[in-house]
Design a binder for these strands. Sequence first.
DNA 1: ATGGGTACCTGTCTGC
DNA 2: TGCAGACAGGTACCCA
Length: 276
Amino acid sequence: MPELPEVEVTRRSFCERILGARVTGVRLGKPLRWPLGCAPANLVAQTIGEVARRGKYLWLPLARDGMERGGLLLHLGMSGSLAFSEAPGEAGTHDHFDLVTTRGTLRLTDPRRFGAVVWSASRDDGMAAKLLSGLGLEPFDPAFTGDHLHAALKRRRVAVKLALLSGDIVVGAGNIYACEALFAAGIDPRTRSDRISRARCERLAMAVRETLARALALGGSTLRDFRDAHGMAGEFQLQAQVYGRAGEPCPVCGRPIRRVVQGQRATFFCPGCQRR
DNA sequence: ATGGGTACCTGTCTGC
DNA sequence: TGCAGACAGGTACCCA
């Protein structure tokens, strides 16, 4: 479910309300991708700082007596969502983590349990550092330019879609938005990354930024069941041009959209509009 | 270093 | 209706 826009929409939806709240309890459900990494009791009485996002990860800084004491790194995996509410209902089968605070409860619901909640002594330390260190540029970072993308793609020879998905060049575009961005840029997703001209990289960088920005402005994707932490649905699905539309006519040229598999994942593209 | 494949887990949908 | 099989938004890790 969650690519960068969904994660950012989620972050914004509870960041201000949870800022300054004090942790009063933690409830753990079934195990997630990794163990929490500290005794749950150690989180109690800590104060939550400003929630940050890096790629598809969220970082909840924790402080005690004004001193930063590490934090929680969260990932929504494939099927996770976060809800923040003053009176959460009884935890259901897929509610695997509750952070109970003086302002309300932050609850992670994740049927597939590919998500994660991991404590680290700091963002630059331990598990958080390990997970964040290999990440590429943020798509809205001014340093993410056509030149940067061109140089990075030159160093590899995988299909350009896989290079986008790998997350070590630019973060945030998952399967849906990678397909959409390549469509917007007119590039065949199977094109070898090192064969893409500088000019086309310029278009691609812009397409990645704009695709993610538009989805963000629309409140994220609702492809299946995305909700922000208030339970609001996004509407990017109304905007998807190629994703999930195999066989349907391309909205631009009318040719049928194709589905292929790359890296065991579905890729959708228009054979007319997208060229190698 | 790079690239390819596997693994994690559960729900939903499709076709027989 | 039941059941097997395919498929799903992510990413760390292992091996060649």
